[in-house]
């Protein structure tokens, strides 16, 4: 806005070429970027078998959605995903809060070494350790359970790191005041630190939900029944090309899978982007 005054004496000129190219470029890229989604939405509304013709004269129909809903236990998959995401998030919040608090406010022998080990876990991806983790989960008797899918993700190094940073930035005077009033350590954590880190919690929760809603490889490996399978695995089984399902049906299934998260995103767009920002900056 500040530049308005500087350029006020040149407003009679045509808008400069740079600016026009910027706007054009930004729009074209935006349309290209969103087009796979738009095409899929459009294809899903076409009678099956005709979608690829890009023929705009066909009437729109919801039959693909009806068919997909009847062909696969989506309701169950959906519930499984919700249960899974909730379970993981709950576990992460508890474990990472406690550990983050320990690393931020307590002095103990070997703390810094252990913390570096924790950071190292950011690079030992659970995805890469599928072979052994599969063996461990099976040995624990957790194969094909929500807990089996979720447990490896609960002690999240990322979460511990974020919360440690957040707790460290809380002024120590707040803690001392609470302690004078007779709060225990747990009381201090719950009444001072957790409320102070609220935005970080929100950010972390959104990132965690989006990650695990979308996770695929690990759930594929440790599930083998419709009773535990999350949406992504269900969708992959359904969409496999060799089953001969045609593209408008696959599109309908895809749209159904992503709709809840997509809607949540469109409603909470600001918070979402803010959340990703906050989670990534540190």
């Amino acid at each position: 806005m500040k530049t308005d005054t500087v350029t006020a004496n040149t407003t009679l000129k045509l808008p400069d070429l740079d600016k026009v190219l910027d706007v054009l470029g930004a729009w074209v890229l935006a349309i290209v970027w969103i087009s796979p989604l738009l095409f899929a939405a459009w294809a899903a509304l076409q009678p099956s078998g005709t979608a690829l013709g890009l023929d705009f004269s066909n009437p729109l129909t919801f039959e693909n959605f009806v068919y997909v809903w009847g062909a696969v236990p989506w309701g169950g998959y959906f519930t499984n995903t919700v249960v899974l995401v909730t379970l993981i998030l709950a576990g992460q919040l508890v474990l990472c809060t406690l550990a983050g608090f320990a690393f931020a406010r307590f002095e103990f022998k070997g703390r810094d070494t252990v913390f570096i080990l924790v950071l190292l876990q950011l690079f030992i991806l659970p995805e890469v350790l599928i072979v052994e983790n599969y063996a461990i989960v099976s040995k624990l008797g957790l194969f094909d359970t929500a807990l089996g899918i979720g447990l490896p993700y609960m002690a999240s190094a990322f979460g511990i790191f974020l919360l440690r940073q957040a707790f460290k930035s809380v002024p120590i005077e707040l803690e001392e005041a609470a302690r004078i009033e007779g709060c225990s350590w747990m009381g201090v954590l719950w009444k001072v630190y957790v409320p102070a880190a609220k935005p970080v919690y929100l950010a972390y929760a959104l990132v965690s939900i989006a990650t695990h809603w979308n996770n695929f490889l690990w759930p594929l490996i440790v599930t083998n029944s419709p009773e535990t399978r999350p949406l992504t695995v269900g969708l992959s089984l359904f969409g496999a090309p060799e089953t001969g399902v045609d593209i408008s049906v696959i599109s309908a299934a895809t749209i159904m899978t992503i709709a809840p998260l997509l809607m949540a995103f469109l409603i909470f767009q600001r918070q979402f982007i803010q959340a990703f920002l906050r989670a990534g900056i540190r």
Binding site: A26, W27, L29, A30, I31, W33, I34, P36, L37, F39, A40, A43, L52, A210, W213, N214, N215, F216, L231, T232, L235, S236, G239, P241, I247, I250, S251, A253, T254, T257, I258, L261, L262, F265, L266, Q269, F272, I273, F276
Partner: peptide
């Protein structure tokens, strides 16, 4: 423009693959 760029981020990779199949 901003949401158009960001939207693919929140989709599962499996769903993204299905979209691109088209």
């Amino acid at each position: 423009v901003r949401s158009a760029y960001f939207t693919p981020t929140i989709l599962p990779m499996i769903a993204a693959a299905n979209l691109w199949l088209f």
